[in-house]
Amino acid sequence: MPEQCGRTFDEVLLSGYLDDALVQGDEQRVRVHLEDCATCRTLVEELAAVREATMSSTFDTPRDHEWPEMPRTGASRLAHGMGWPLVMAWVVLFGGYALWELWTEAENLLEQLILVGGVSGIGLLFLRVLIDRLDALKTDRYREVQK
């Protein structure tokens, strides 16, 4: 397995040479070096073989019917954008009303404790999800794009 050839030559250029991404002067330099350096010639050949194997690979991909439809029109996007806030508002209002009813209907301390425990558990889970989402939002490069 060839290692560094040890000459005054920037080996990184070999990848640029392989990708045809060098300026003319650098490409000429690599050509001249390769004529004289068996170590780098072997390296280029091995890298080219691995590159060819990667490039010629094929993966199975989902069929068309497996993809969901995209939100398409302005109206669709508006509906998509408004749907969740409306659902959330409904959950808060209906949930609040239901909790109030349960609290006032509770006949003893045990029932009140069960109610408080359940609500606290769900609240903590929701808070955790919210914190994760906010953390993810802070590190999102595209947050400005979405506004």
Partner: peptide
């Protein structure tokens, strides 16, 4: 890009 790519390719080959 080129230096990072070359480092990755070398590691892959190794």
């Amino acid at each position: 890009v080129m230096s990072r790519l070359h480092g990755a390719r070398r590691q892959l080959r190794a």
